[in-house]
Design a protein around this nucleic acid. Structure first.
Length: 888
DNA sequence: CAGTGAGCGAGCTTCCGCTTGACTT
């Protein structure tokens, strides 16, 4: 059943109103689009009879964090996910920060509007934005939905004739998508916090992206390299040409593809491998004789131009040709779009509007000639899964394409470069095929009982076609290679034979471009999100870049393991595709949102729901096991890489060694791991001898950072040790400084009663102590230079924190309890002596009323008593004793 | 992979997809 929102009918408004005959303002239609740049363009087409304004994306969403949850819902069990799973998965929406500002503005404009046109994009998200706008604006004027797939005057004029109501089926599909993503992300992430590390994240898109990067690394780790040799021969007929050995004594010669990547062994019995000696023997046998051309094959070929740019293809090409990161490409494209040089840059469509086709064809004919213009415009089918095609392909804007030189003058070098790429790709996509001929020549050398078959490939173009404008980089390798004229049976001389060694290489790492390409092929992620997916997986510590290569961390290995073992159906490469087909049914009115959500969350038939998966993982996933990446066995003991609280480390038979954070996992071979295990950590650096007694002064790097030491431990008696002061670089510490440090505590002076004031370098930094009282030394004073006067001044100040937090304000008494605002470790909070409640961010403690305070306390009491800490004691202890060892 | 001084309410983290922010030079 198709469900369409019931909306008031549009009154007869065929002529856009402007001013009446008296010249006074009369209401105008208000048109809302998604982006300000689009609003400016459309405004030009529609003229002064319309107001055009942007929503600037979504205006409402599920609250992202605790601060965004409205007071009315705090404390509810589903407040954190903001999806009431018990009550038909009802979502809780709040205005976003920008949404609040924009809605305020739009409400004001709406007061003088005759009709509201919602002209957001025609896809799930655009329909949802339109619906959210009506929910937030609650307009009293008629509402109509306008859609156009291209920003041209004719398309917009046409859309006014075919306005329609909001399609609630599309909105429901969007909500289902949103809710699935929220339930997945906000329920699976906490499992990672418990089993791997806090602040990690999991999601429908990012977890697959991480998995793809991890998978590739695993392939590299499993890879076993192999080697083979071949020959190249130089022949001469009327002209010289070269050939590569393909057969030896009638048997095909093995090449890289013939080796099993995980074993390095030959996959087929039908090919033979030449080693160096074998290659050398064959070369010796064949050298100096003649060879016969067995056959010359000529095959004509055609090459078609590539489709116009989608977002992902633009990112891929800019990455290949300019080595730009996705983020850079998108920000340059944004500037081109905002300044009217290109059409919208976040699209999955390869379609060109009639306007664009006309522009391209006119240009091709005049600039390149009729031979480069096909009889009919080329049409490209969009191949990517789940494409929503709300926009055109990315192309130069307008009815005729402006030149790259003009772009360079108007904007910058980057903009002109990217514009040139888009210009070329768009124009080339509407040009004729390139045609040419491929030639393959087989030449057989036969001497001293040995036979070698050599192959030579040639390629020539007889018409360049689209290649005159745009060549994909991978075609650069297929450069033209013209061969001499040769005939079957012709005898040629063998001028030279060389041997050449090869080794197979592991599959190359993914980079931004190839990861985006894989995601797009799988239908995962949207054009507007490709760049941010890459940002996310890096900022969560799953992936880091080395050059352009994406390398997974050990954390990524642990997380992926956990997800594969316990949430396999969710990180399956087909999960999104299956979800999308369910969403399509909802959008078409043949599927139910509620049924989809129930199946996903609670399970259905033999499909386990999210809820059960979570429960099972909480119970059975063993954190130690999950965080272990087996490397191999050494001396009958397992060598394991582990993800630890303070970073990755290696363990073998009770010995641990930390691993560098940026160590590529595939470089951690068993041999390398054993080497690390067996390397005793860097010993101390000798700084010199104590002039008083000749003791060795040494610099060490310890668990809490760098420190200096005098002498060696004698039995159980430990030598004198002292930490470097905050901000001191270990490299900059010489003998003199070490001696000064080892002389601590330093006597600064005496107080009025004659008590000694001493300066120490302590756990929390430098401090002074006098008569049982201590004060921290401010960073700008310096432990070694502090004067007696300064020390006395410090002692005169109040201790920085007393046992009880400072009372900021007395609010009064309620139920015999004093209500106070205190300053605590996490900011100001109110307390009645029993219950404490932190003030919301941005609340001024000075202006807080008793009433507000008691509401806060009541809300807090409603949540029940604070949970007992269940953390292991050792970890809390470690946490409190941890001290920053960063020195800069 | 060192032990040197004190201490104070726990609560938040996280998803994907739309879209631009800009105290000044």
């Amino acid at each position: 059943m198709r469900r369409i929102a019931r909306l008031p009918k549009l009154p007869g408004l065929s002529i856009p109103p402007g001013t009446n005959h008296l010249g006074s303002e009369v209401p105008k239609p208000l048109v809302i689009v998604e982006s300000p740049a689009k609003a400016r363009t459309i405004s030009k087409f529609l003229g002064s009879g319309f107001h055009v304004e942007a929503s600037i994306g979504h205006v409402r969403d599920l609250p992202a964090s605790a601060d965004d949850i409205p007071k009315s819902h705090r404390g509810k069990p589903w407040a954190r996910t903001a999806v009431d799973v018990q009550n038909d998965f009802k979502p809780l929406y709040v205005l976003t920060q920008r949404g609040r500002e924009q809605i305020k503005k739009l409400k004001t404009m709406l007061r003088d509007a005759s009709v509201l046109y919602l002209a957001t994009d025609e896809d799930r998200e655009g329909e949802a934005i339109a619906w959210h706008l009506t929910e937030a604006l609650k307009p009293k004027v008629p509402i109509q939905r306008l859609v156009f797939h291209e920003i041209t005057k004719s398309a917009i004029t046409r859309s006014l004739q075919s306005a329609r109501p909001i399609d609630m089926n599309l909105v429901e599909a969007q909500e289902a998508r949103r809710i699935v993503d929220r339930l997945f992300g906000y329920n699976v992430s906490p499992v990672l916090w418990k089993k791997v590390k806090p602040r990690l994240s999991a999601g429908r898109v990012q977890s697959v992206a991480v998995r793809l990067v991890v998978e590739r690394e695993r392939e590299r780790m499993r890879f076993v390299s192999s080697g083979w040799w071949d020959l190249t021969a130089g022949f001469k007929a009327a002209e010289a040409f070269a050939g590569t050995l393909v057969e030896v004594d009638g048997t095909r010669l093995a090449t890289g593809r013939d080796f099993e990547p995980t074993t390095g062994k030959l996959k087929t019995a039908k090919a033979i491998v030449l080693d160096e000696a074998g290659a050398e023997a064959l070369a010796t046998a064949l050298r100096g004789g003649t060879a016969k051309v067995l056959r010359v094959q000529r095959r004509p070929f055609r090459e078609k131009p590539a489709a116009p740019f989608t977002t992902s293809k633009l990112q891929q090409e800019a990455n290949r040709k300019f080595r730009w990161a996705a983020k850079r490409t998108m920000s340059v494209a944004q500037r081109l779009y905002e300044n009217g040089w290109i059409t919208y840059m976040r699209t999955d469509s390869t379609t060109l509007s009639p306007e664009a086709l006309n522009a391209a064809r006119t240009l091709i004919k005049s600039a390149y000639g009729a031979a480069f213009l096909p009889a009919k415009p080329r049409v490209y089918a969009t191949k990517s899964k789940g494409a929503q095609e709300a926009h055109e392909a990315i192309r130069p804007a307008g009815e005729s394409f402006k030149s790259v030189d003009d772009c360079a003058r108007a904007l910058g070098a980057d903009e002109a470069r990217l514009y040139g790429l888009i210009w070329n790709r768009t124009v080339a996509s509407q040009m004729t095929d390139a045609t040419g001929e491929r030639v393959s020549v087989d030449t057989e050398a036969n001497r001293q009982g040995r036979t070698g078959l050599f192959r030579t490939r040639g390629k020539t173009y007889d018409f360049q076609g689209f290649r005159a404008v745009y060549v994909r980089e991978r075609n650069v390798r297929d450069e033209e290679n013209e061969l001499p004229k040769l005939a079957d049976g012709q005898v040629v001389s063998v001028e030279s034979v060389h041997t050449k060694g090869h080794t197979t290489s592991p599959p190359s790492r993914l980079n931004e471009a190839s990861l985006v390409q894989r995601l797009e092929e799988l239908g995962i992620g949207r054009p507007s999100t490709y760049a941010s997916i890459i940002e996310t997986i890096q900022s969560r510590g799953y992936v880091f870049k080395k050059g352009t290569a994406l390398i997974p961390t050990f954390t990524a290995f642990a997380t992926t393991r956990l997800l594969e073992d316990h949430f396999n159906s969710l990180v399956d490469y087909d999960f999104t595709a299956t979800l999308e087909s369910g969403l399509d049914q909802i959008a078409a009115g043949t599927g139910q949102r509620l049924a989809l959500l129930h199946a996903f969350y609670g399970g259905q038939g033999d499909r386990t729901g999210l809820l059960q998966l979570i429960a099972a993982a909480e119970k059975s996933a063993d954190p130690r096991d999950i965080c272990s990446i087996p490397i191999g066995t050494h001396d009958d003991g397992a060598v394991v890489a582990r993800v630890g609280r303070y970073g990755p480390y290696l363990e073998h038979a009770g010995t641990t060694r930390s691993l560098p954070e940026d160590m590529p996992p595939d470089e951690l071979t068993l041999a390398k791991a054993i080497e690390i295990i067996e390397t005793v950590p860097d010993g101390p650096t000798a700084l010199g001898q104590d002039p008083d007694n000749g003791d060795e002064i040494t610099l060490h790097i310890g668990r809490f950072g760098p420190y200096v030491q005098r002498g060696e431990a004698v039995g159980k008696v430990k030598p004198k040790r002292e930490s470097l002061l905050p901000g001191m670089e270990p490299d900059a510490v010489g003998l003199a400084m070490a001696l000064q440090l080892l002389a601590l505590p330093r006597e600064v002076g005496k107080d009025a009663d004659g008590n000694v004031i001493q300066a120490f370098n302590g756990r929390y930094g430098p401090y002074i102590k006098c008569n049982g009282e201590s004060r921290s030394i401010p960073a700008e004073k310096g432990l070694l230079t502090l004067t007696e006067a300064e020390a006395l001044a410090l002692l005169a100040t109040k201790p920085r924190r007393s046992r009880t937090p400072t009372v900021l304000k007395e609010l009064g008494v309620e139920n015999d309890k004093k209500i106070q605002v205190k300053s605590g470790r996490w900011g100001p909070y109110v307390t009645d002596g029993e219950t404490n409640a932190t003030l919301k961010k941005g609340t001024d403690p000075e202006t807080l009323t008793l009433e507000e305070a008691s509401t806060l306390l009541a809300a807090k009491r409603a949540k029940g008593p604070a949970k007992k800490r269940t953390r292991r004691k050792s970890t809390t202890k470690k946490k409190t004793t941890r001290r920053s060892t960063k020195s800069s």
